[in-house]
Design a binder for these strands. Structure first.
Length: 490
RNA sequence: CGGGGCGUAGCACAGCCUGGUAGUGCGCUCGGUUUGGGACCGAGAGGUCGGAGGUUCAAAUCCUCUCGCCCCGACCA
């Protein structure tokens, strides 16, 4: 059996699947389309949650929890929303099982049919706005700035671990505001939060933009998104933030008395990121040796491995290493000393590389005599020997350097794979190679659809920072005033 | 949901065509030797061959149905 992973260059999706499995992040479950997130994978998710949650709190949001089940009648109320999600809903029709009178096992009790079916939430706008009706009477009740951490179910035809699972974990923010401007500002603010999180924590450069009407969230007036480029040249939507207008307020009959004493519908936003970010994290940075984790999200930042023969040597190394461990911990760096005698050092090296631990320290007798320690960094796979005295400060700096380097590498990759294209021939050629394409578009969904049919590329977004620039649509030749971002996407 | 591939020990696979005692490597257990990049030797444990039905004296192998996984399309965060 080969101990290495499949190569990215040979079979990207097999590499991805194997990596997720072998690094102990997650596995497919007995339930179709659903995953088991294993402790190591969940530890990364927890770090993401913590960072995001702090950012949400810092922008004035509070957490709450709304029910898993959505009455069918709620889902129906906002028409666009309803038709957008109808195709992928899990439906609860009964509330009881009974033993099978004709044999073994259990059957659904036909007597226990629900009067109204319950939908397992694909998202929570409807339950939440139904609740907000009772919470909002006056302009003094606004804004409402609530987030919830939850699971949702979207019955996907084709699933991929982390990237598209039938059940996934996410956070969904749902806010209500007195004015249109304030709601738009909120949607944009949260997009910025996502972008900052992606770049500072995940070391993932993203492009902020708005979706075209066809790619818009069902029920939204505007969908903002952050788009990232994966190593195989495909785009991944890493987060979305929606300006929902007054659609849900109207559908759920939520009104407030404004300062002038007139009834008004409040303005809404919703925004979310999911465990899909795990997929983004993996696909953006990892290599053929395994995961490459940005230090700020790595459950374990430093692994220390002793290289020894016999207990006596191990004891000496352990003694030498102990103060280093203590000092690293004191600085808030997560560190593990792997003195497990059941595995050899070479095995451990490979294992922690597979798991993406940013820094490895190794100490053997040679180091002990010279008062040195070997430092290996995961992002570059380079090693050097350094004096023990300064190792803690070095590690501290190195963690930051790795975080930055991973980001720079991803940014460089994106820049090298972003193409400004003006002709259809070039579009066809570049889209085959993968990457982002910046091209003019005439603004019609007809053209968007044609391009998708012919190339499988979609408009990922209209970048927020797109310059006004006269040009002609790459497909139809009609006039256009800015470039939009095309790519094949996950 | 369509097209293709695959389900045999924890993992990777052979055996199936041509039915006749279920195998190999890795992993696991025990003992020993080892230890600066996935150690070696020896001895072991582990499988209702995805499930159900059928054909047959006999089914991992042939037939039917079913469930699941992977890849490619249509749909999506």
């Amino acid at each position: 059996m080969s101990k290495g992973l499949p190569k990215r260059s040979e079979n990207y999706s097999e590499w991805y699947n194997e990596l997720v499995r072998r690094a102990g992040l997650a596995e497919n479950s007995a339930v179709r389309g659903c995953m088991v997130i294993k402790p190591y994978g969940y530890a990364i998710w927890e770090k993401m949650q913590r960072a995001l949650d702090d950012m949400f709190k810092a922008t004035g949001h509070v957490n709450a929890y709304f029910p898993l089940f959505v009455p069918k009648s709620f889902l129906e109320k906002e028409e666009e929303h309803a038709s957008g999600f109808a195709k992928e809903c899990a439906v609860v029709t009964h509330y009881r099982l009974k033993t099978n009178p004709n044999g073994k096992g259990l059957i659904v009790d036909p007597e226990a049919k629900l009067e109204e079916e319950l939908i397992v939430r694909p998202t929570s706008e409807t339950v939440i706005w139904n609740t907000y009706r009772n919470w909002i009477q006056s302009w003094r009740d606004l804004p409402i700035l609530i987030n919830q951490w939850a699971n949702v179910v979207r019955w996907e035809m084709r699933t991929r671990i982390f990237l598209r699972t039938a059940e996934f974990l996410w956070q969904e923010g749902h806010t209500a505001h007195a004015t249109r401007e304030e709601a738009i500002e909120e949607a944009e603010r949260m997009l910025d939060v996502y972008a900052e999180f992606a770049e500072k924590w995940m070391a993932l450069p993203v492009i902020k933009g708005v979706k075209t009407p066809t790619e818009r969230f069902a029920g939204a007036e505007e969908t903002y998104c952050i788009e990232a480029l994966m190593q195989d040249g495909k785009a991944l939507q890493a987060g979305t933030s929606h300006f929902l207008g007054q659609n849900f307020a109207k559908s759920f009959d939520v009104q407030f008395m404004n300062k002038e004493g007139k009834l008004e519908y409040p303005w809404a936003t919703s925004w979310g990121v999911s465990t899909r970010l795990m997929g983004a994290l993996i696909m953006a940075h990892s290599d053929d040796q395994g995961l490459v984790l940005p230090p700020r999200l790595a459950p374990l930042q430093v692994i220390i491995i002793p290289i020894y023969k016999g207990e006596e040597e191990l004891a000496k190394i352990s003694e030498k290493v102990e103060p280093i461990i203590q000092e690293l911990k004191r600085k808030g760096i997560s560190v593990k000393y792997d003195d497990d005698d059941k595995q050899r050092s070479g095995w451990k090296f490979a294992e922690y590389e597979l798991r993406g631990v940013p820094i490895r320290l190794a100490m053997g007798m040679r180091d002990l005599q010279q008062n040195t320690i070997e430092v290996a960094r995961r992002d570059t796979l380079t090693k050097e020997t350094r004096p023990v005295e300064t190792i803690v400060e070095h590690v501290e700096k190195l963690l930051e350097e790795i975080q930055e380097n991973i980001y720079r590498k991803a940014l460089k990759f994106r820049e090298e794979n972003t193409f400004v294209v003006d002709t259809w021939e070039e579009f066809l050629e570049k889209i085959e190679r993968g990457g982002f394409i910046l091209a003019h578009w005439d603004g019609t969904s007809e053209t968007e659809e044609k391009i998708k049919e012919e190339t499988k590329a979609t408009i990922r977004c209209i970048p927020l920072d797109a310059k006004e620039e006269a040009g002609r649509c790459v497909y139809s030749g009609k006039p256009s005033n800015k470039r939009v971002l095309f790519a094949r996407a996950y």
